[in-house]
Structure formats: C-alpha cells, structure tokens
Computed example of a mutant assay.
Amino acid sequence: MSFTLVMLGDDRLWAARLAQAVPNLRVLCPRSEAEARVALAEADAAYGALPAALLAHARRLRWLQAPQAGPPPGFYHPALVEHPVQVTNMRDTYTDHVAAHTLALVLSLARGLPRYAREQQRGQWAPDWDPGSVLPLPEARALVVGVGAVGLEVGRLLATFGTQMVGVDARRTKPAPGFQQIVPAEQLDEQLPQADLVILTVPHTPATESMIDARRLALFKPAAFFVNVGRGPTVRLDDLVKALKAGRLRGAALDVFESEPLPAGHPLWGRDDVLLTPHVAGAGPHADERRFAILLENSRRFAAGQELINVVDKAQWF
C-alpha cells in the first residue's frame, strides 16, 4: 500500500534516503507555505511542525513525526490535540549525551568547580579545604524528577558513585537499575526536603510548566543542589534567583531556561554558585542518524500498518 509523506523543515536531505528505503513511499518536499498547503491536502503523513493554518489543509493526515524529543512551545496547539492524527516524537535519541552532560554538571557542583573556574579567570589561587565545601556523593541522596530514558540513565550512572537514588515519575512505578525507589509524581513535595541533589529531566507539559516555583523551592534543603536538563519552562527563573540569594539552595546547574538565550545581564550569569550551559546537553555524535533511524522505522511501520514507536499523548505533549 502506498502513502505520501510531506517533509516540512530543514531535513529535506533525508527525503531521497527515505524514499529509497521504504517501498511505495512518495516523499514531497514543499519549499513554500503555498506548496505545503497543496502537498498536505494529499498527505497521509508528515514530518515537522504543523501550525493550525497548515493543519487545516491536512484532511487525510494520519501520522505526524515531530522532529524533536520535546518540540518547542506551541507545537501541541489545540487544533493538533483535537485532530485525529497520531503524533510520534524523537525521544531516546540523545539519552547518552544528556546523561553524560548531567553527570558533568553534578560532579562540577559537588566539587565546587563553578567557583574555581571563576577564580581561574581572575587569576586567583583560592583553595577551599573546608570538608563542607564538597558534596560527598556516596553519602548523598539524589532525587531524579522524571524517570524517562534520560532519568533512568542518570540514575544508573550516579548510583555507581554510591549515591542513594530516588525517582519521581508520572508514569513509571516499576523498580529500575540504580534506584532505591520510584514514587508517583504526587509525592514530589514529600521527597524534595529529603534530597541533597535534585535533578530535573521532565519534558515541558501542561503538568510540568513552572513546577519548580517559589513554593517548591522553599521545600528544598538549604544545602541542596539543583540541576535542570529537562526543559526551561519547568522552572521559574525569578523564583530560583530569589532562592539562591536567600540561601535556600547551595547551588544550581542549568542547561535549559525559560527564555533562550538567557538574556545578557541576567542575575544567574554572575553567580559563583551557578553553572550554566547553553542548551547543549544533547550535543554529541550520531544524533542526526539516530533521528533518521526513528523516522525510517516509523515510515516502515506506517507502510505496513503496524504500531508506531514513540507515540505521544498529545494532550500531555509527551
């Protein structure tokens, strides 16, 4: 059975490979919005973002492949949620890269490297031999908020340091390697005061938007570290800045932000207790090939009438 897939966005170079690999697949690559409207009118599937104005022309559309694991805000607009189209995403394509980056952030905080990096820039020799200046990981309790692919790998890696690992997740309840326990999302407030290290890996959804705010930051241990490698809109940065200034946290490391890029002059830039990276946790080799592999696998499954992988609950955005 043949079907038509419309490629929207910057990955048109995949079109020839995809058409060659999947029999009876016709790939269209519109180069303007007008061409996209015409192509979508006959499309069974699409790759990329479909704003409401384009989706209105997709009368036959049954499958949409999102180009990211967590598409930008607005991807899951009301018209898409209500549309019968099935959406899949690119989750688990950057897991090893993001987990390694997370461990780098954790180790940097635990050993006080953000301050030493700034001392290096100032040309100052300022060793701190206070035993309390480091977080001993074998004696620490880490809370991973979001035990998906990245959270699972972070837990497995960090557990090798002897860290006690606890997970909070809205879907996963079964035990996982490295974790002492995984509890429902409803128990987040109960777990926060017990953690020396809180690591956020959750996607941006209606339930997670602004989940770390002033109220929840007040539940943290004053000596706790906070790491966010999930999505920026999950954390209210103004509240985080206030918590750091008030000594409610020992330090923080962030790879994602409410507003990206983080504005020049933002208070977080100059803090010795904060480590910032510019949304690069997923950087690493093979990412494009892994993304293509998911698109190819789902194209083959769609052509064969089989169940797709990485299916999204559109109402929950993941």
Rank of each mutant, 00 (worst) to 15 (best):
L28A: 10
A39Q: 06
E35Q: 15
G167D: 01
L152H: 13
N310H: 15
R300Q: 15
E35S: 04
L28Q: 12
F179Q: 05
A176D: 03
K314I: 07
V183S: 00
R291L: 09
P184I: 08
E186A: 15
W317A: 01
G74T: 11
R216P: 07
D169A: 11
R17N: 12
R26H: 11
L55K: 02
A264R: 14
E258V: 09
G162T: 09
A264C: 04
Q124Y: 03
L64M: 09
V27Y: 00
W125H: 07
V154A: 06
R291M: 14
V134Q: 11
R91E: 13
G247N: 08
G48A: 08
F225H: 14
G265R: 13
V106F: 06
L80M: 07
P177C: 06
L244D: 01
D44C: 03
L262T: 08
E139D: 13
F318I: 08
Q65T: 10
R115S: 09
L13S: 14
L237A: 10
G162V: 08
F220E: 03
L244N: 02
K174Y: 04
T205F: 11
R301T: 11
G123D: 07
L275W: 13
A252W: 02
F257P: 10
G155V: 06
E307G: 00
H279S: 05
E119G: 01
F318Q: 10
D313K: 14
L254C: 07
L192E: 00
P184D: 05
H97N: 15
E33Q: 14
K242Q: 14
Q187L: 11
L295R: 10
A36M: 00
D196G: 05
L268R: 09
V235Q: 12
Q20P: 01
F225Q: 01
P206D: 10
D92H: 14
A159G: 09
V235T: 15
E139G: 03
G270N: 13
N89E: 03
D96K: 03
T4G: 07
N24L: 06
G265H: 13
P233Q: 10
D213P: 09
G247F: 09
L8A: 01
S210D: 14
R172W: 04
E260Y: 12
